[in-house]
């Protein structure tokens, strides 16, 4: 059985999408059998979801994207001439 400290490192790897199949299996097995680690795992997952949700609330409209693209194209044109 994996120790809890190793599992903490694996949680970060797993949530970053960097854990291999073997590490993923070890992690899930441990989490299912250890309540403390399951709490941490659930918290880490929720914390990341929260951060992602909040960061994606930053407004970027299609209009400002197209305006910026136009401005860049114009500047490139000026630089070339």
């Amino acid at each position: 059985m994996m120790d809890c400290k190793t599992l903490l490192q694996l949680i970060q790897l797993y949530l970053d999408g960097e854990a291999n199949t073997e590490q993923t299996e070890l992690l899930l097995k441990h989490v299912n059998g250890c309540q403390d680690c399951r709490c941490i795992y659930e918290f880490e997952t929720a914390f990341r979801s929260f951060l992602a949700k909040k960061m994606n609330e930053i407004p970027v409209s299609d209009r400002e994207i197209s305006e910026l693209q136009k401005k860049i194209s114009e500047q490139i044109q000026i630089n070339e001439s």
Partner: peptide, 8 residues
């Protein structure tokens, strides 16, 4: 990781 654990 110990710190992360503590805070979590």
């Amino acid at each position: 990781d110990g710190l992360i654990s503590q805070h979590a």
